[in-house]
Design a protein around this nucleic acid. Structure first.
Lengths: 338, 338
DNA sequence: CTGAAAGCGCTAACAA
DNA sequence: TTGTTAGCGCTTTCAG
């Protein structure tokens, strides 16, 4: 088996406490020779302290958990990079989990992390485990990222969806579009989706455009489904009473929509314009490069981690939960005309 | 603080052992009434066992670590999905880490995971910590994924790069290309890169084409750098003695190359053809869709996890390490002409 | 069918 | 400056 602190102590000829002190950097008052002997024995045995035992005793793991909704979404990986960098700089470990948009998986991961005694949690929640998350937040700090949970009182880092949608709609209206459809993943409990749809309606109204129920399409990101719904939406062909612009409420939808449009052999933006919410590394490689509302994703990850660290260090300073709203930015590319 | 097993025992009026047995499903010979009482108390107190304490005692965490080289690479996220699904089905927990192509970070993560007493490790290694990894493999099973470590003897799941390159080169030669350059990330210690470059040279030779040192370009995936190197490579313009086809040795390079070509306003495949190793979700959205050698990435993740599980359960059955080679597949799209 | 007791590997008073 | 001791929360013989 693995070598323990007792073994090291025995061989170095000192007590376990002394080794423990050495490990924890408490050697201010330690004789230089024991210090060196310990260092040598540790090196010889290639000893590494058992983090489980240590954490069990200390009641702190110095570890935070992060759960993303869907790791295949470039949004998630950028957020992760932001979280990771800030956490590492502060000396915390990170355990990453992927809920895969499945509330049951999310629940399992939350429980697993809590059982492993994480010191804090950052979660891009499915929105279906709010009660559990609120419960967790009573014992350890939790930060929501991207998606709010309106019914619970927790620190949240997200983006101002309404403003982003507003900018985007202004832009396409200016380009002459009057028939704007929105495609979104099913809203269920996911705050940004709800907000974007609402903002879309508000923005239309602001421009005196009528909102049409049948131009608000809920769909999964599945290629076949998107293709079918798009065909229905655009039935009748150009010139008819149909949308000239498709506003996709997140990047997964945008990708599927672009794929579907290519399958339908329609030209962008000539026959149909595409506008997306969320930028991602390869949006510019698409033909044509897609105009999107970009979020400062990496920064959001940073901020969430920084906030969490503050909470974890803040002891029981129960300040009010805060909501941090980042500003999105419209990146005008080619997919809406120009 | 959190509720402990002692608390549950006290309230239920039984001993800790009994609670422990209940928790571990050892209630075959337990009176139905104590069983029910325990269940009730646990529910009332919302008790959850401390995984740290449990693992410390059991000397098993039922947790495996996975370290990917770069989580921003779609390759990594697909592998992760494969690992995750297989692991979860077998009841193991997963701790995900991102080495960010940094050997120092990788080392830290390996150590962190080992300290946390993971039962097994899957790693897409930077190739710079082989000694450490070999050491870890003495105590817990380790599976390498994608990248081999030739100097150490460890189970490995990867793809037959040589075969993929060969298929690809055959294809483009058939399309009439005789001037084929290869762009790759710096080889340092990364087996697939080395293998692909070698296979490229072999394949050229197989077609009687000369290998030119100056057409083998090493570069980071940084946009500026790729652009500069591409400009140098293609200096002189079409018709001159320059490559007509760029073979990109992985997807990060492919993306940067496509970006650079667009910046240079060259047409694909008219003025320059592009061929990539690694498929990814959005390669088909690029203009034109990129022809690539695809790896069965998700399956590879599955397989790595399955193999690891076998090793973890196999006790000290020290079977010889094995190398599992998946077959890549050429996906002919539009970027090489036809 | 259930309980008592020892101990996993470490830390943290309290002594010395 | 270092050692002794008593746990952290759980599991697991061994008794009964």
């Amino acid at each position: 088996m693995s070598v323990t602190i007792a073994e090291v102590a025995r061989i170095a000829g000192v007590s376990k406490s002394t080794i423990s002190r050495y490990l924890n950097g408490l050697y201010d008052h330690m004789s230089i020779e024991t210090k060196e002997r310990i260092a040598q024995v540790i090196a010889e045995l290639d000893y590494r302290p058992n983090a489980l035992a240590r954490s069990l005793k200390q009641k702190r793991t110095h570890t935070v958990g992060a759960i993303v909704a869907n790791i295949l979404n470039p949004f998630s990986t950028s957020v992760i990079r932001g979280i990771e960098d800030t956490l590492k700089a502060a000396g915390f470990n990170l355990i990453l989990c992927n809920a895969d948009d499945d509330p049951a998986k999310e629940r399992d991961y939350v429980n697993m992390l809590v059982d492993k005694q994480i010191d804090g949690l950052i979660i891009n929640t499915t929105g279906c485990n709010n009660e559990l998350i609120a419960q967790v937040n009573k014992n350890i700090p939790v930060i929501l990222i991207d998606r709010k949970a309106p019914d619970i009182d927790i620190d949240t880092v997200t983006v101002d969806s309404a403003q982003g949608v507003c900018q985007a709609v202004d832009h396409i209206v200016e380009l002459g579009h009057k028939h704007i459809a929105m495609l979104t993943l099913p809203y269920d409990h996911v705050s940004p989706r709800i907000e974007r749809v609402q903002a879309y309606q508000t923005a239309l109204a602001g421009h005196g455009l009528a909102f049409r129920e049948d131009w608000l399409v809920q769909t999964s990101a599945d290629e076949q489904e998107v293709l079918a719904k798009l065909k229905a939406l655009l039935a009748g062909g150009a010139g008819k009473d149909r949308p000239t612009c498709l506003f996709c409420a997140n990047n997964m939808i945008t990708m599927s929509v672009v794929k579907a449009i290519k399958k339908m052999s329609l030209t962008i933006p000539g026959e149909i314009a595409v506008l997306g919410f969320d930028d991602w590394e390869w949006a510019q490689l698409i033909d044509p490069p897609v105009t999107v509302v970009a979020q400062p994703v990496y920064d959001m990850g940073n901020k969430a981690a920084a906030l969490l660290i503050k909470r974890m260090k803040g002891g029981r300073t129960l300040k009010k939960p805060i909501v941090i709203l980042f500003e999105p930015q419209l990146l005008k590319r080619k997919s809406c005309g120009e």
